[in-house]
Design a protein around this nucleic acid. Structure first.
Length: 421
RNA sequence: GCGAGUGUAGCUCAGUUGGUUAGAGCACCGGAUUGUGGUUCCGGGGGUCGUGGGUUCAAAUCCCAUCACUCGCCCCA
């Protein structure tokens, strides 16, 4: 029988890794709630149009990374490659209410058909927030502040740098794109093959090329700042000042652009050097055109998404192991009569809030070994001796100290051990 | 999608210029100890050497393909 492998780019999450994921998710969920972002969930698959219409025909995600299939009714379905479009779809449909601004938090799996690498999987997990219906810089500032706060709470803020840029409004961006294209076309011979392609399809993407020849051409390329409308400049100014007022350190990166078409104005990215090539750990921006693109009323929005695998890896690398589960109490019955009694005892203790591990088989020696492997803090030994006298032996597994306690008082004897989950 | 590297037990790895029944440590299971765990001692189970094909008297070892992982490009979270 040949062993079946997991699908490429997918991972089983063992208890330790799952705990690291949960550590990230729970910090994010708690902080998001504190900022007024309530948790929601959208389906992990949508009609393909939800993504095709919003992400842009030239984006890599749409052109080659979507998991798309036809279901039994003939509908074209796509496993979500990101969650913003799904949230926007639900908001437009009124499924999340009519109150504006609408603020939400989400966590869940996303799917992209990519070449797997460290920190890059085909099924990966994101946390994210969206703030829909507020056009003010204050909204951008709060959204970014939440991201920074989360990174701080996870203990990794000093491992990342915040880069920020403005993509301006459409008119400014169009003017800038024209100037950029003119410059790039004048130096087309010096550009890499890929950048020449991008020049035609999505010229702004040339800006973050790592090719040395491209960089040389870009060195004296026009900057967007010269093309900003007064409003766009003021907006970006407002965001930067707000971040400074909150003591959130950032650097301006005029080459920072977004891969997805729906972004405008603020674009930001928390990146780290500690994770190799996949350094973006939490990133997002403003997407004022998105809701309208999807057929809703013109509605501004801003948000971010963070990669759970990447955040968890960064936490593990810089902070170390996350807190382990609470240590259980092990029940060690000896003999069939004791086993029957132990069942009820275990349930009783669990109802009192203790984590209780039953030992199922073997001699006392074997069962204590099991208790030890389960990281139990104490063992409750219940044998014929004890049954006769209506007591149980409580053994502290760290010190080896043992006391006998009447069964009714077991709860008090065990109270000094950590409560269960 | 492109380039490079790696794949031997559950894990980390050794395995000589191709040469007989492929090893170690840790982990696991049992016993020493049918009422006392962690330490120790003894024993045991586990491998189609990633998979498929080829070369050869002979392949874990050489060749080809393929799959997976890792790193870079690309992309992004």
């Amino acid at each position: 029988m040949r062993r079946i492998q997991p699908v490429r780019g997918t991972h089983d999450l063992a208890a330790d890794e799952m705990r690291r994921h949960r550590h990230v998710i729970e910090h994010a969920r708690t902080l998001a709630a504190r900022y007024g972002f309530a948790e929601v969930a959208t389906p992990i698959f949508e009609f393909s149009d939800v993504f095709r219409r919003t992400l842009g025909d030239t984006s890599d995600i749409v052109t080659k990374e979507m998991y798309t299939f036809t279901d039994r009714s003939g509908a074209e379905i796509t496993l979500r490659p990101e969650n913003t479009a799904g949230v926007a779809r639900a908001v437009i449909g009124g499924n999340f209410g009519e109150r504006r601004p609408f603020k939400c938090f989400y966590a869940g799996p996303m799917f992209r058909y990519e070449r797997p690498q460290k920190g890059r999987l085909r099924q990966f997990h994101q946390i994210g927030v969206e703030l829909i219906g507020a056009a003010e810089p204050l909204a951008d500032i709060e959204v970014i502040a939440l991201g920074a706060h989360l990174l701080e709470a996870l203990g990794v803020l000093d491992q990342v740098t915040l880069e920020i840029n403005t993509l301006a409004d459409e008119a400014s961006r169009r003017a800038y794109r024209a100037a950029l294209v003119a410059h790039l076309e004048a130096h087309e011979d010096a550009l890499s093959e890929e950048s020449r392609q991008r020049l035609k399809r999505n010229p702004l993407r040339v800006l973050d090329s790592k090719d040395e020849g491209d960089k040389a051409v870009l060195a004296d390329a026009p900057a967007i700042d010269a093309h900003l409308s007064a409003e766009a400049a003021a907006f970006f100014d407002g965001v930067c000042q707000g971040l400074s007022a909150l003591d959130i350190a950032f650097t301006r990166n005029p080459r920072l652009v977004r891969g997805l078409d729906y972004y405008c104005h603020t674009a930001f990215e928390f990146t780290t050097e500690a994770l190799g090539a996949q350094g973006a750990v939490l990133a997002g921006g403003r997407y004022d055109g998105l809701v309208e693109t999807m057929g809703g009323p013109a509605t501004p929005g801003v948000g971010w998404a963070g990669g759970i695998e990447r955040l968890a890896a960064l936490v593990e690398e810089t902070v170390g192991a996350v807190a382990a589960a609470p240590r259980p109490i092990a029940i060690v019955p000896l003999g069939t009569r004791a086993e029957a009694a132990a069942l009820g005892l275990a349930q009783r203790l669990r109802r009192e809030g203790l984590a209780v591990e039953m030992t199922y088989r073997g001699s006392l020696s074997k069962r204590l070994k099991r208790a030890d492997q389960a990281r139990a803090a104490a063992a409750v030994i219940l044998g014929d001796d004890e049954m006769e006298r209506g007591v149980a032996t409580v053994r502290d597994l760290d010190s080896g100290a043992q006391v006998e306690a009447p069964e009714a008082e077991l709860g008090t004897h065990l109270a000094r051990y950590a409560p269960g989950p």
